[in-house]
Amino acid sequence: MNAKRDQDNVIDDSRLWQAVERAREKRKALGIEAPTTDLIAAIRKWEEKETAMGEGNFELKLEVEAIPPNTVDSVQARLKEVIEEVVAASGLDTLLRGQKPQLVFAQGLPTKEGVDIALMVLAFVLHEAPTAWPHLKAFLELLGTRLKKATPRTINADITIGKKKVHIKGMTPEDAIKVITEEYEVYFQPRRKG
């Protein structure tokens, strides 16, 4: 216990210097000379990269018809359950940095045909868009699978990540996923190999 406490109180920078030595060995092995340092230029480069990557708002609107004997309330409760499960199962929760995805349930909307629609809006901010993409895709795929039991249903989605915007209206989850995937698969090639 005391050893742990002592360890917590020590600032041990040895790994920083190990990283420096490792970098120097790598440069030597690759025959690269250490570049001149310009911290301000490095900051500008980082800021440019951040701008290119961008942060994105993710907002998904789900409209599910509540066909009797289901009520709007019971459909909304199931939607909430499904969303929470799928956010966790897709790993999306690990990217939200403490954010709770906002689940907003509007009142049931009566349609002309007299069928109530349960409307749910899921919203959160993605801070690292490229790394978020695999989780977002998994989220949409899992959601599509889970919602198959609740047909008919449509998805309206407004997704903004970086400079890219996708608007989807009145599509099935499968079609929505197809559109989003096509829109993003080129844009979201990871910049680095992980």
């Binding site: 920083l16 250490a34 570049p35 340092t37 490095a42 900051i43």
Partner: peptide, 12 residues
């Protein structure tokens, strides 16, 4: 990958 110096790499 970005050919940064040690100081630049630490900073970013």
């Amino acid at each position: 990958e970005d050919a940064m110096s040690d100081q630049e790499a630490a900073l970013v």
